[in-house]
């Protein structure tokens, strides 16, 4: 699948992953910077959203800044993984959930208001799915999440 992106869309994707304008009309400000209209920016972003190129316009919050979080993992038989993933996704405490190629194959991130809330959520997931949850809370973060430079040349 070749993704057709306009120059405006490429610029938006690479240059606005951080320092999004905190002004009453951020899209108009971006439009000014890029020499296009506010509607052009809004249309381009809506299309990127429809094409699933962006998750959202939002905030990256480091682990444990709000409540408590942990990386968690499970070993689930291949033929049950979709079902178990769907069960886990129902929890609003779960914000990322990936299948990975390994015996320990389901990896997700949980965030809760406090540690007893986290414990209860994990116990509930184990109870509902019948699989044990391994917990890997963050001890130390070594990286500052700078925006990811995308190479959007058609190749």
């Amino acid at each position: 699948m070749v993704l057709e992106l306009s120059d405006l869309q490429k610029k938006l994707l690479n240059d606005f992953q951080r320092d999004f304008p905190l002004t009453p009309t951020p899209y108009a400000n971006i439009a000014n910077q890029l020499g296009v209209s506010e509607n052009d920016v809004i249309d381009a972003l809506n299309e990127l959203d429809e094409k699933q190129c962006i998750s959202r316009i939002g905030a990256i919050i480091p682990p444990n800044q709000l409540g408590v979080s942990t990386l968690a993992a499970m070993s689930v038989p291949q033929d049950e993984i979709e079902h178990v993933a769907a069960q886990i996704n129902q929890y609003t405490e779960v914000n990322h959930n990936y299948e990975r190629e390994h015996e320990v194959n389901l990896w997700f991130v949980l965030i809760a208001s406090h540690s007893s809330h986290l414990d209860k959520t994990i116990a509930s997931i184990e109870n509902e799915t019948g699989y044990r949850v391994l917990r890997f809370p963050l001890i130390k973060e070594f990286f500052i999440d700078l925006s990811f430079r995308l190479d959007l040349a058609n190749d």
Binding site: L3, F16, R18, D19, K51, I54, A59, F148
Partner: peptide
């Protein structure tokens, strides 16, 4: 907030 902006979906973008 560590950063505020567009959060891309890497997979769709190649």
């Amino acid at each position: 907030i560590k950063r505020l902006g567009i959060i891309v979906k890497h997979a769709t973008l190649g």
